[in-house]
Write a protein that binds this DNA or RNA. Structure first.
Lengths: 198, 198
DNA sequence: ACTTATTTATGACATAGGTCATAAGGTCAC
DNA sequence: GTGACCTTATGACCTATGTCATAAATAAGT
């Protein structure tokens, strides 16, 4: 996260997106740096049959879609608001200017990319070599450790729909529903009022 | 890649690793920055049954395992030499010093991480939503575009064993062998003397 | 309030890819 | 040079997960 005041010094603009609205599309060139003020954004891919894969979900104070700003490549995925969201947008040129003029910020960016890479490494190994139960638990525990998932008296609330869980782990909804039930029977998590707690 | 002279100014040390030798292990803290002078290194994970997943293979002039240097986290995977290799190693402290004293280098690091993130995004979507034929072609085409795979008169040589291909895509060797044969029949690639060309 | 869409749920059945067994050609170590 | 191991290969069979159909509970939109 970059300080809002600093971004605004480089002409950042606030922009609102309705739920389901597309922020940018796969294979397009990157034109802006985006940081979330409020709401949530997912980055995703669709295969030829329309099956979705969610690369990640981002929340307030997080940025997303930076890598192509530094490469001569297009976006590897789409970005879409999962709730009504307010974003700070800053043009590629201004963003690169900001970084070169504020070297400390680049360490910041490195940390953000390093974190994201860490998540991708963990999930890649998970998706390729583990069964559905292991995959779900890993996703839940990772989300609890590194995202802003809240703890209440039932445990940590996994604030994701079954469909989203499936699309984050490469499983179908039905499999997620069945696996969650099995995990509940095994005592690995709780289902209260259809919500998952860990 | 960071200039060797610059690394040596910060007390980088040359170190040789035999094929199959471990460079660092999963869950350990990061102590050094590593850059390959010659040879090749893979980063991998094993599941409980010993199945391997290869996060990536790195060649001369590439670095690997940087993210945990910037985070308070351990390595998400192991690093192992796939051939006899010579590496340049520089301690975490010296490396961080190098970066802060040479702001231009941090842009360099950002680009490296951005590239790696791009690969992971593409492969993650591939592994979770596409069938084996699609996965293999994607891996081959990505490797050709972004790695140093050489073209000869048969086409681009895919310099990976069937086992490595499987461990990079989350498929078993037998499946890889069968899929490659199918792809050959479909004219998507050539098998000459057991080697794959695209 | 009423319609429409989303989310959770469950059962029956299908299949891509995994598993296991076996083998032959290559490569490496000593 | 020979034994051990790795790589490619193929067949028979199995199973975790996907697919399809159906439905009720909940949420969202007008």
């Amino acid at each position: 996260m970059i300080e809002i005041e600093l971004l605004e010094k480089y002409d950042a603009v606030r922009k609102c997106y309705k739920k389901s609205e597309i922020i940018f599309e796969i294979d397009h060139l990157a034109t802006h740096y985006y940081q979330i003020i409020s709401g949530a954004v997912k980055m995703n891919n669709y295969n030829d049959e329309g099956r979705e894969f969610i690369q990640g979900i981002f929340y307030a104070n997080q940025s997303f879609g930076e890598p192509p700003l530094f490469l001569d490549r297009t976006y590897p995925a789409n970005a879409e608001a999962v709730e009504d969201s307010e974003l700070l947008c800053i043009s590629k040129n201004n963003f690169l200017k900001l970084i070169t003029e504020n070297p400390a910020i680049s360490i910041n960016i490195i940390e953000i990319l390093a974190q994201r890479l860490h998540y991708k490494s963990v999930m890649a190994a998970e998706i390729s070599t583990h069964d559905s139960e292991h995959r779900l638990l890993q996703l839940f525990d990772y989300s609890i450790s590194y995202l802003n998932f809240k703890k209440d008296n039932n445990g940590y609330a996994i604030d994701l729909t079954r469909q989203q869980i499936g699309n984050l782990t490469g499983l179908r909804v039905e499999t997620v529903i069945r696996t969650i039930k099995t995990l509940e029977k095994k005592g690995e998590l709780k289902i209260i009022n259809r919500k998952v707690y860990r």
